[in-house]
Design a protein around this nucleic acid. Structure first.
Lengths: 203, 203, 203, 203
DNA sequence: TGTTAACCGAGACGGTACGTCGGGTCTTCCG
DNA sequence: CGGAAGACCCGACGTACCGTCTCGGTTAACA
């Protein structure tokens, strides 16, 4: 009953956004810059995305999504594939440029409303699937997979966001080894000699 | 030889900056907001710090610095202390608010010129000291301590920056355990038989 | 094809500018003062006028323009009317306040690009029209009307700008008489015998 | 008992002021610019002159002063000499640059406190002296010399300040002729046919 | 075959922060 | 006590973005 949207505008805007993120960074990826680069009027942008941040999120989401992931049961192999895919997601130039900006914005604004809005979270289920598919005994049942994922997430994030880590540019294989170490069952002889404290440790 | 600076201006400005970071976040911690809150003229701010970012960095640096750290030789204990101190610096409200903003800015601007300018990095030497002080055999010589620090840095960062991780709010002790697992020597039988070649895995 | 300008903004801004010129003078007629007085956002001012000077010129131009002027042929009468109109434009409080400021700015900035941009000059044609309409023999053909206008312009300017002249506050009629004297044909006997050669007198 | 003033500071400051007036104009002749050019600290400037305007006035005064002037009795000659001297003072690059700025400032600030502070006024007595020295009958007694001076002052001012007049760049001799015409006695036959109005002409 | 609602571009609007610059005052130490 | 240095407060400058809005004109889907 009404005029349909010109879908090429969406495409051009999203493409321009990604390009600008790579070339000039998050701060300089302004609505007017996108507007100029995509040759789309700013009002058309605001008609589609309520804010600059929403546009960036939208532009980023396909980059950041991890394609469907079918675990084979070979833990090392699966984790290697997973880690590569996940690191690729964070390591893409646009994501590198945008993530800290987005994190900053989430920090400033009461943050992510729902779990679903935190985009890269989508990788957590895949990781859990991999562990579940691993052969009996390959993963220490004493370890909480979610905790490991949190560490892994941080490791991948640091690899692409923290300057000193970025510069070291270590092979992903090193990270994989450390992840395997966290998951591996410990021999019975690895006695825990350390007395645990009363353990109100996150007060 | 000339009129001395009014040092209370520095103090008031830095204090106001920290307060604002906590209360309104990085983006809203503007020069004018600091100026108003600290009752300091904006020109006095620009006389001291060339930009908003410089002011925030300066305000943050004492919070973020890890005090001198003397390893005792008890690996678990030392790491627990270290982890708590390090998490505290990243977890302080001001740091949580500011870090992603700073990372975004570094990303946008070619960024950290020298290793020294990346402030939180100062924790790396302390971590290495701890490992060095640990008893023979407590740390697997096959593991690169720097790699472990990178992961640990990411884990701490994620704990304070990534919404989903922040919300899980797991005890720091869990992270400590995972760090210990990464460092622990592995029994001879645990040799990885599926070791792939040191392929070009970060192309 | 786009949102139309709110013309009341122009009106309010120009009115406020004139008021401020009268009340506080040129230097104190700042963009922010106009903005506050007219209740118009500064950005709306800059959208219309590229600078403070441009705004002042615009506010002044109607005041300074001499309405269409129809010579009657009676030289004295016409000149009296003209002189009054011209003196009125320079003598208006806003013009008095603004003119030296504008002149100073022109002086500082290479200034008036084209003849047309020098606004009060518009009176020159009217003056020449009056002389042309005067009866044969009323104006000495040996006198260059443009030269007389230059002197007249200076006289009017001095009357409104130069403190000592302003204070003397002489009737305009005195100036009129002097203008008539400059224009009047001289009797043949009044030939200047001491005429020096047309030497290079403006080196 | 105290350290004597460094008199070269005065000289350097005044010289720098004149240079800057010529080169960059009144607006850009700021205290800091003078300070930098003369290599004199700004506070030393404020110690000597209460304000920027005072410094400019001081720098200008020697340029603007008309040297002692001895009338010879030859009206045309004396006036020519006078006009040249007077035009030279207004026409000097520094004066041209500064005068409108000064006028603007006087306009903004309640103006010149006393007659003496209006510097170029000093030329009025010289002009009157010239007329007084002229032979009987050379100057029409019906003309008020002060009125003529006012017009002459304006003419000279316009020659150096008003862009359109500056550009015409007419020989000073033309102005001299017009001044002589204003002063010359009118033959008895030059009947004043124009009825004067009721003459409330400067209301 | 009209209607009509949503699109399109253009650009104005009120806000706010930015970083720079100038003015004129004040405070210190040094000679 | 003069002088150099440089702090201080104050406020204007002009630029840039933000996100909202109001236009006139266009265009498809529905009736």
């Amino acid at each position: 009953m009404s005029r349909p949207r010109d879908t090429t505008i969406d495409e051009r805007a999203l493409a321009a956004t990604l390009e600008l993120l790579e070339e000039v960074g998050f701060e300089a990826t302004t609505m007017q810059a996108v507007s100029a680069r995509a040759d789309v009027h700013a009002s058309a942008l605001y008609r589609r995305w309520p804010s600059r941040v929403a546009l960036v999120e939208d532009a980023l989401s396909p980059t950041v999504a991890i394609a469907s992931f079918e675990p084979t049961g070979d833990l090392t192999r699966d984790l290697r594939r997973f880690l590569r895919a996940y690191a690729a997601t964070w390591g893409s130039p646009a994501a590198r440029a945008a993530m800290p900006g987005l994190l900053a914005h989430y920090q400033s604004t009461g943050a992510v409303r729902s779990e679903e809005e935190w985009l890269p979270i989508s990788a957590r289920p895949q990781f859990l699937d991999i562990l579940r598919a691993a052969p009996e005994g390959a993963v220490d049942p004493a370890v909480d997979p979610d905790d490991v994922f949190d560490v892994l997430l941080g490791a991948v994030m640091a690899r692409s966001l923290v300057p000193t880590v970025v510069e070291r540019d270590r092979p992903l294989e090193r990270t994989l080894e450390l992840v395997l170490r966290m998951l591996a069952p410990r021999p019975a002889t690895a006695a825990r000699t350390d007395r645990r404290p009363a353990d109100a440790d996150h007060a």
